[in-house]
Structure formats: C-alpha cells, structure tokens
C-alpha cells in the first residue's frame, strides 16, 4: 500500500444473523481513502452506513474480505490487537456524544491519553478544551452541559490521542443548526490543522458537500458520488 493510503477495503462483505435469518448488509465493497482526505458516507436509513463505519474503525469483524488501516489488517487481528490499533490510529465522534457520565469534561478528554499511559494527559486535555472553547467548563459533568457543549467535549476527546483517522457518526444529528455549524467548523479545522483523515457518516447534504469526496451507500453497495 502506498504510504499515503489510510484505508483500503477489498471485497468487503458483512452478514448478520437475525430472527428472520441471515441478512447481508454489505456486499462486496471496494474502496480506498487517502491520508488527510475527508470523506462523507451518505445514504438512507438502514442502508448500512453505520455498519461500514464500525467495520472500518475495527469495532466489529467483517464476514469476508479485507479492511486495512495503514499496516493493520483488522480481519486477521484479535480484539486485543484491534483495540490497540484503535488507540493508536483512530478517533471517534458519535451522534449521541457518548461521554462517560461519571467523568468531568476534562476527565473525559484525558481518557485516550491516559489509556496510552501519557503523563501529560491533563495538560493536553486543557489545551484541547480551550481549542473547542470550553476552558470554562473543565470540571462540569456531561449532564451539566448542553448538547452542543457535550459534542465539543467529544471532539476534543477524539483528537486527544492524536488520531490519524477520525470517524464521525452523524456528528450533528442531535444538534440544532447553530451548534451543528460550530461543531462542523471545529471538526474541519482540527482535521486540517492536525492533518487527520476524516470519515463521516451523515444525512446532512450540506455537511457532506464540505468533504473532499462523497460515497453513497445503497442496498449494501458503495458508489462514488460525482462532485
């Protein structure tokens, strides 16, 4: 793989077992994402966007085919190895924020660095929270923050481990327009300033248009949308 390829997917198929029998969600997907690229995955509800995102990030194991993140081939790894790879390469921003309710904003942001055993976790977290404009909210708990603030904390957390790739699942899905715009701006600014690859699942066409590329998910197949 060329040094500037961040993600390479070949012949990816994924089948899940449900009450009504086996259901193939992803059917023979091939794609590549280059380093520092921003890519939007769009498509209707239930088309398999989030499943693809989960597999790309190594949160689940695909049924067949290969997913390669830099030098990591997820399908050949144990959960232990995939977790290490996530810690090393990947950052996440979720639709429902997923901050740990028992931790303060600063502690949530410190987590990825702490997991790596970084001694400067607190200082780095303070800097990141300042970047997202929340230096006055360090010791607030998630339930004391608004939705927009929670998502900004989540973005700060996502960048805390200096990820090479940032996965975002409907990052503005639970936010109003004003907060949504603020979050998007932050996401792209940080993406550019840190040279991160951005892979985003979204319903929002405007947001998708801001990305370098758009991939359309439909009935388990992925096609490139012409810009």
């Amino acid at each position: 793989m060329a040094s500037n390829t961040a993600i390479k997917v070949s012949n990816l198929t994924h089948t899940v077992t449900s009450n009504t029998g086996d259901l193939t969600i992803l059917k023979g997907i091939n794609m590549q994402i280059q380093e520092s690229e921003s890519v939007a995955i769009v498509g209707s509800s239930g088309s398999g966007k989030s499943t693809l995102l989960g597999l790309l990030a190594g949160l689940d194991v695909n049924t067949s085919g290969d997913i390669q993140l830099y030098d990591q081939i997820f399908s050949k790894q144990t959960e232990e190895e995939r977790a290490l790879a996530r810690g090393q390469y990947v950052g996440f921003v979720f639709q429902s924020f997923h901050l740990l309710p028992s931790l303060q904003a600063i502690e949530n942001v410190m987590l990825p660095a702490e997991l790596k055993g970084d001694k400067d976790a607190r200082k780095k977290a303070e800097v990141l929270l300042e970047k997202v404009g929340l230096s006055h909210r360090l010791t607030h708990y998630p339930n004391q923050l608004s939705g927009g603030e929670q998502q900004r904390v989540a973005i700060a957390r996502a960048f805390a481990s200096n990820p090479k790739i940032l996965f975002a699942d409907e990052p503005t899905g639970n936010l109003d327009e004003e907060n949504g715009n603020l979050v998007i701006k932050l996401l792209f600014d940080l993406n550019q300033s840190q040279g991160t690859t951005l892979v985003m699942v979204t319903h929002d066409n405007d947001l998708a248009k801001m990305c370098d590329r758009q991939l359309v998910m439909s009935a388990g197949q992925l096609t490139e949308k012409a810009l």
Partner: peptide, 16 residues
C-alpha cells in the same frame, strides 16, 4: 456497559 464500549473505542484492550 456503555462505559466499557466507549473505552474500547478509545483503544482500551480487553486485557487492560
């Protein structure tokens, strides 16, 4: 449950 899932996405290994 959710805390563990989140920690895993952040790179926490089952061993850890």
């Amino acid at each position: 449950l959710m805390q563990v899932a989140i920690l895993k996405t952040l790179g926490a290994t089952p061993k850890l």
